[in-house]
């Protein structure tokens, strides 16, 4: 894959809003056909990045090429090559699903004699054939998102941008949307770039993933490799008065963090070594061992948690929610 020219490439892409640097020297290359994720908390610069790639915002510095076209010099050609599914609803409530598709087809210059066939195809792809003639007012959040996915594909773009494709959906609809996105990728061979702050979504969908924080990429790899980069399993122990010195000396304990009576270890091959650790550490009330998740990866690279489901509701999470409209 490395020999192929990337379908999207950015060079030191930067966006400033007054003093705030929303996107800071971003360098990414995305290959044709992959599902590429931008993972980060709200305000990390994900949507700004997409907007620049989609020619909706001019970059402050640096350059970006989409499907071989410079986003600043040939915006119209870029826009012909891409489809965009926005974070907020972007279809007309008073029109039916099919009418919304029809409008989109006209605006993107889809050949008149192809329009009906193409609308039928994409409607079928997202299983909305039965509901196509209903006004979108009556659509659920998940259906609306599906229709907007279908609409993004109508003009057969090479690249599809999805901005938080499952934001605000219930878990069931979310999994539905995931399966549709996978289907698009395999059946239509579209390159998909999505932003998300749901760890699970990034893990499930993305071939490669860039963790982005404060407008910068802090890590970029496949989800599996990112998790592996932590070097081992995550072991969480609840214990009073632990003997941390002895545990630290063990060569397979790669990392150790203590928070109150909770000790978090990164352990190479926890399965075989757990017994020994328990012996050394002293009185243990509870123990939990698991493979690392993207959450751990995020924590490792940024020093904080992204908290997508957030039962604790830390300051950081409140900050995220307060930014949402």
């Amino acid at each position: 894959m490395e020999n192929i020219k990337p379908i999207i490439e950015t060079k030191n892409l930067t966006k400033r809003f007054d003093k705030l640097i929303a996107v800071n020297n971003l360098n990414i290359s995305i290959h044709e056909g992959e599902i590429f994720g931008l993972l980060g908390p709200n305000g990390a610069g994900k949507t700004t990045t997409l907007s620049m790639l989609a020619t909706l915002l001019p970059p402050s510095e640096g350059s970006a090429f989409v499907h071989g076209f410079d986003v600043e010099k040939e915006p119209s050609k870029v826009r012909h090559s891409i489809g965009f599914v926005f974070q907020d609803p972007s279809s007309d409530d008073l029109l039916t699903g099919r009418e919304n598709l029809y409008l989109h087809a006209l605006m993107y210059g889809v050949e008149m004699h192809d329009i009906n066939q193409k609308m039928d195809d994409v409607l079928k792809l997202v299983d909305l054939t039965d509901r196509q003639n209903e006004r979108m007012k009556r659509y659920s959040g998940g259906m609306r998102r599906r229709l907007e996915l279908a609409r993004g594909l109508l003009h057969e773009p090479k690249i599809l941008f999805l901005d938080e494709p499952t934001l605000g959906l219930d878990p069931q609809s979310r999994e539905h949307i995931w399966s549709y996105i996978k289907k698009l990728s395999t059946e239509r061979k579209v390159t998909i770039i999505l932003t998300t702050h749901y760890m699970e979504e990034a893990d499930q969908l993305c071939d490669r993933l860039a963790i982005i924080d404060h407008g910068k990429i802090v890590a970029l790899d496949t989800p599996a490799k990112l998790k592996k980069s932590l070097g081992g399993d995550v072991v969480t122990l609840r214990t009073k008065d632990p003997d941390l010195v002895a545990v630290k000396k063990l060569h397979y304990v790669l990392d150790l963090k203590q928070e109150g009576d909770q000790v978090m270890l990164t352990v190479d091959n926890a399965g075989t070594h757990l017994q020994e650790i328990l012996k050394k550490i002293g009185n243990v009330e509870s123990v939990e061992s698991r493979s690392p998740t993207l959450n751990d990866v995020f924590l490792h690279f940024t020093g904080r948690e992204i908290r997508d489901h957030g039962s604790e509701g830390g300051t950081f999470e409140r900050m995220i929610t307060s930014r949402r409209k």
């Binding site: 909706l56 050609k77 974070q87 279809s91 007309d92």
Partner: peptide
């Protein structure tokens, strides 16, 4: 306020 205008503005028009 919603993204409706974006859908129109991102079209190649």
């Amino acid at each position: 306020r919603v993204d409706f205008l974006k859908e129109v503005l991102v079209a190649p028009l």
